[in-house]
Write a protein that binds this DNA or RNA. Structure first.
Lengths: 335, 335
DNA sequence: CTGAAAGCGCTTACAG
DNA sequence: CTGAAAGCGCTTACAG
């Protein structure tokens, strides 16, 4: 059994009120009492119960985080920077990994509510009706990180995905490519599905390039799907000279597939990724990618959440960060 | 302000005791009262405070996890399987990312104690004296996952790192290699530093192969250090025909370095990794690796922790899992 | 089957 | 500067 404040008080020969005062660094405690208390704390190995404290202060210092896939380099990097920001603000993270499991997500949101987390961060946008309703009902500040769901009431920290995809495609066009394949995301996702697809299409049409639908495919952002979609594309009669995948993972899958078919990146096919995850520098050839400011995103997400918490839940409005094209080895001029 | 049990009681016209009974699924509540209560709960959007509940039940359902680096594929995969096991046992995870930051670790362990977590999982073995003392003093069940620190009182879920490294090296020897380089870990780490190094050395000497010290180097398990150590090795007069790196990340770094020096893997140099992380299948050539059962490790770690918790902290003893060599493309017979 | 009361381990007015 | 008392939101004997 852990010692409690009463034990400390008894050992120090003071009241629990005084112990509490020392614990909370209040002034107006005589030095000799303070010393006695600290000695008792040390000797008993006393650690105040955050549970009891939370109950009376109505403050838990807890943030709930919902991550779609912990093993993804993109999400784990955001999570890492969120953790850093949380920790330096005195907050602790309750982490839930949902792998497309809506029931688990629903359950966890309830747990978050029961734990009285002060805020919630969600990193995906597949929010169904039931969950949307729950979020509103819970009345806890929520920030979406890297995505923007349909519901306008939700605040997000994002980049301009349309513009980013547009710029990525434009870069390929400027390299002289005219047959530019596309491996998109889930079209039920506004941010990373629809917006990036629109950016790609509009860049093509703004440059009078005909859209070739057989070279447009959609995956689930993961390596394997990039591989599979690329495999299909390689069977087409007009194989593209460049391919833009809307995640680095899919871009890597596409590169691997091309290599496994004895073609070369970038000599035969240029590959453009999206996200700017750690992978881009780990693979060979290194991956040219439209980078999201991943670290900043985590930090700013926590900042926005802190702000919304201190404003008693009044939304802060979306924050749009800058994207940035990082040129590496996987794209080159068309001969 | 969230509604409380009193509000529900008033709305349903019953006592708080009855509401509590309904909440906890006790029998002995008449159906009509139960219905009234459930209706009130629904209507008020009431969620019981886990904080208050924890205080009286002395049970928080919280597990604290200390991860050395969330962005590492190895740790994030273990964490993911820990999360899964925790969640299905009704536990929630408080996650702390320490990047070689002992102060932060110390601080977090205290937070864990204050939060009254029921158990702690630690995934690194750089435990200094201060932290060792704290862990013992806290009197909370702790399991080390994938590592075994010096202190015999700590229980671990691990593989036999010595044997695994021995087997990995032996495999290279059996492929006909005689100049086998080594990129080790931190020699202050018993498990992943010293044990793997011993396994390598003993495999060589058991097969009467002379140890060439200039081809033995040590990194920090990360990609960059694998790259750097390999670069040094390539400057030696006798460049090895195979290199065993004690993490997949370092193995990848070594591969990249070899490629950047216009040599080929495995034609010129074979590369053996360690861990069996996701990376092994994502890179080209795919990486032959001595695999730890990563998913199982997370699950078993949680199992061991649950057991230790139910036994009131009495240690369960180490659990040693099987390693497994997974042959992929990066190693081949010496010509 | 139901409820009043005590208690979980703290903090915070309030009084002195 | 210090302490007794009330209260945070629940659960759990205890009594009926």
């Amino acid at each position: 059994m852990q010692p409690k404040i009463k034990d400390v008080a008894r050992a120090a020969g003071v009241s629990v009120t005084t112990v509490s005062r020392v614990l909370n660094g209040e002034k107006y405690v005589k030095d000799d009492l303070k010393n006695k208390v600290n000695q008792a704390i040390e000797q008993l190995g006393y650690a105040p119960s955050q549970i009891a404290r939370s109950l009376v202060r109505k403050k838990t210092n807890l943030i709930g985080v919902i991550v779609p896939d912990l093993t993804s380099s993109f999400y784990s990097t955001i999570l890492s920077s969120i953790e850093e920001a949380a920790s330096s603000n005195g907050y602790n993270l309750l982490v839930c990994n949902i792998i497309e499991d809506t029931d688990k997500e629903f359950k966890y949101l309830n747990v978050f509510q029961e734990m009285r987390v002060e805020g919630i961060i969600i990193m995906h946008e597949k929010i169904n009706e039931e969950i949307r309703t729950l979020i509103h009902k819970m009345n806890i500040p929520v920030i979406f990180s890297s995505v923007k769901p349909m519901d306008q009431d939700f605040t997000s920290v994002i980049i301009d995905d349309y513009k980013a995809a547009y710029d990525a495609t434009k870069y390929l066009i400027e390299l002289g490519h005219e047959e530019i394949g596309f491996i998109g995301g889930d079209m039920r996702d506004i941010t990373s599905g629809q917006n990036r697809y629109s950016g790609y299409r509009n860049a093509l049409s703004d440059h009078s390039i005909k859209i070739v639908y057989e070279n447009i495919r959609f995956g689930d952002y993961k390596v394997r799907s990039g591989y599979e979609q690329m495999k299909d594309m390689l069977r087409n009669k007009q194989v593209p000279t460049a391919v833009f995948a809307v995640s680095d993972d899919m871009a890597l899958g596409a590169m691997n597939c091309i290599r496994d078919h004895s073609l070369r990146v970038p000599e035969d096919i240029s590959i453009m990724g999206f996200d700017g995850s750690l992978l881009t520098e780990l693979v060979r050839p290194t991956l040219t990618s439209m980078e999201q400011p991943i670290h900043e995103m985590g930090r700013i997400t926590m900042g926005a959440l802190m702000k919304q918490i201190s404003q008693k839940g009044i939304p802060t409005g979306d924050i749009v960060l800058e994207h940035r094209l990082v040129v590496r080895e996987s794209c080159r001029k068309r001969e």
